[in-house]
Design a protein around this nucleic acid. Structure first.
Length: 580
RNA sequence: GCGCCAGUAGCUCAGCUGGAUAGAGCAUCGGAUUUCUAAUCCGGCGGUCGAGGGUUCAAAUCCUUCCUGGCGCGCCA
């Protein structure tokens, strides 16, 4: 618990007779720093005391202030903590506490200084494993802008949980199985070209896929052919398998290029096909539990008692469905990684699917079913509708990324032409801009993709955060001496400094909250706040002033801010260039 | 038809486990640089928090009805 809150709670406990936990929960931070550093709302007392909260606040603040004045010298337990409460005053229905700013600064800045790259980390997840299923694109289709979200949110969540001490296993659950491969094989055999083995690209595969759907509208028989080919694939037909493997190789090569660009790493690429050999056992187990039955020639788990549509295990042609493979995959992952939690970062259009999946796992008797979570997110849309590879209507991820890098390159040329390593900085900032733009909004909202919006680098953007970081690095370079935490903390007395320092102290709890809600956007918003406070400070107060003591103090603040921004960018999966 | 999600400034969003005057950015208008990178900062403009009803001392926040948009609802993933 925060040092000051601890003191305030023990003080209030004595005078209000409320339980400590309750008080701690109620303590908040006033909206305006001028009101004080911490606040206790008195509404809760108005019922028992039968007085208006304003009056209670006035009386309580007077009592507390008197108590502090009287007891400071003697009380051995509260002595230090009490002396650091500099003022207790009533503001409306709140009792507001002001604390000694030098102590506040010392606690926050020393912690950051000592923990540096580990600041914000915790060990609450030590010895526990989290499996994160993310990105998981479909083979034979391009990675498009709408595939970005799962990859980025998953990657950030992975970093966040790692920071909390969890062992994270990032799995790319490739969509490399299913009727669509039957479709692709049919399309390839009908319209494909002989050189597939040497020259085919994902674009070619995607064209075949689009063509299949166009043709299938005119000729529904194609769908049956496709199902037949998938059945052959599932039963191990060598021709089908060879084609499938090729489609897969081509896709993986292209995916890897993008993941490298984004700086995203997976611990395993295990596609759906991998579970093909396990689904029979899975189905057997489901049958043994008496959960499965045949309906309309298909094998299902009836979820009617749980107010859900049935979960289909096997189609009438005997091939399996993705739900079946997902059940097998969940069992496999539990056996392999013995996870404490499993997180699926998949779009919200699959919400029902995961509800069904988790329910089936629960019905199978797996106690860990309730430790599986679907971290869903809204769709990426154009102004005029949903993106879809089926209709060939997409913005390719690669184009977006190279476009952003290109744009940054121009801006560097314009603003900082003498910069070294322009190429790598342009890449870090361009990619970072895309990452930040995507992570910045709460994940369950739909995102409307707008080139102008994504390529505007002013205001609340990735480049803004990185730019702030680069300027801080620049000051430290100019300073040229080692940073020390042995400073006179009372010199950091300006409002802009205090607000910033308090903000920096919040970082660990922001990480925690982001983990709790699986919400990387909280970190984006936090970084915008920190950078805003820093830039305000930077604009008003000179760091390298010539006054040695003051310089030392402000340098520590600069370094601490740099560190927090760097750590924050890291968990988002972004680079923090030192010059730009 | 049923279910889930969203609706806050012209635009994009924050605030939502009830609490102090509803905040940012973009756009627009006006200002700040002999000094640490102006990808910055300051100010102006801009809001019946989709609509009605309810709970409460207190509602953008909780409940309810309705409206609008998105997604989903057995052999795709």
């Amino acid at each position: 618990m925060d040092y000051f809150i601890q003191n305030i709670v023990s003080l209030l406990k004595e005078k209000t007779h409320l339980p400590g936990e309750e008080i701690e929960r109620l303590i908040e931070i006033p909206p305006d720093f001028k009101m004080g550093d911490y606040a206790f709302p008195c509404y809760i007392l108005s019922k028992t005391l039968k007085k208006a909260p304003n009056i209670i606040a006035t009386e309580l603040s007077r009592t507390l202030q008197t108590f502090i004045n009287e007891n400071t010298p003697e009380s051995p337990f509260l002595k230090r903590g009490l002396r650091e409460i500099t003022e207790v005053k009533a503001v409306g229905p709140y009792v507001n506490f002001s604390v000694d700013k030098a102590t506040l600064s010392e606690i926050a800045l020393k912690t950051i200084y000592e923990e540096h790259d580990e600041y914000g980390n915790k060990n609450i997840g030590k010895g526990k494993t989290v499996v994160i299923d993310f990105s998981s694109p479909n083979i034979a289709k391009h990675l498009a802008v709408h595939h970005l979200r799962s990859a980025l949110i998953g990657n950030a969540i992975r970093h966040i949980y790692k920071a909390l001490g969890y062992t994270c296993v990032g799995i790319n659950h490739l969509g490399d199985w299913g009727t669509q491969f039957g479709q692709l094989i049919v399309a390839y055999k009908k319209w494909g070209n002989e050189n597939a083995h040497t020259s085919y690209t994902v674009t070619d595969l995607n064209n075949l896929y689009v063509k299949f759907h166009q043709e299938a509208e005119k000729n529904p028989g194609l769908e049956d052919e496709a199902r037949a080919w998938f059945k052959k694939l599932e039963s191990g037909d060598s021709e089908a398998k060879e084609l499938w493997q090729h489609f897969k190789d081509i896709s993986l090569k292209e995916f890897q290029k993008i993941y490298d660009l984004l700086g995203i790493h997976f611990d395993a690429f295990i596609g759906e096909s991998f579970y093909n050999t396990m689904v029979e056992d899975t189905i057997t187990r489901i049958k043994e539990k008496g959960l499965a039955r045949v309906s309309e020639q298909a094998l299902i788990v009836d979820l009617e008692p749980h107010n859900m549509p049935p979960c289909l295990l096997r189609k009438k042609d005997d091939t399996t469905l993705y739900a079946t493979r997902d059940i097998a995959a969940a069992e496999y992952r539990k056996n392999t990684y013995n996870f404490d939690r499993m997180i699926y970062v998949v779009g919200s259009e699959q919400k029902l699917h995961f509800q069904q999946l988790f329910k089936v796992l629960e019905l199978m008797g797996y106690e860990w079913a309730n430790r599986c979570v679907h971290v869903d997110f809204g769709l990426m849309k154009f102004k005029d509708g949903k993106m879809s590879t089926r209709r060939g209507k997409v913005v390719l991820l690669e184009d977006l990324l190279t476009g952003a890098v290109e744009r940054i390159r121009k801006i560097i040329e314009e603003k900082n032409p003498s910069l070294e390593n322009k190429e790598s900085v342009a890449r870090d900032v361009g990619i970072g801009a895309v990452i930040f733009a995507d992570l910045c909004t709460k994940r369950n909202k739909d995102v409307i993709f707008d080139w102008d919006e994504v390529l505007n680098f002013e205001g609340e953007t990735g480049p803004y955060i990185q730019y702030t970081h680069a300027r801080l690095c620049s000051i430290l370079r100019k300073y040229g001496r080692p940073v020390t935490a042995d400073i006179r903390f009372e010199l950091l007395k300006e409002d802009e400094a205090i607000i910033l320092i308090k903000n920096l102290g919040q970082f660990p709890s922001v990480i925690l909250k982001a983990a709790e809600f699986y919400e990387p956007s909280l970190i984006c918003n936090y970084l915008i706040d920190v950078c805003g406070h820093l830039n305000r400070f930077y604009n008003i107060h000179r760091v390298l002033s010539g006054d040695e003591e003051l310089e030392k103090a402000r340098i520590l603040l600069v370094d601490a801010t740099r560190q927090v921004v760097k750590n924050g960018l890291y968990v988002l999966g972004m680079q923090a260039p030192e010059r730009m």
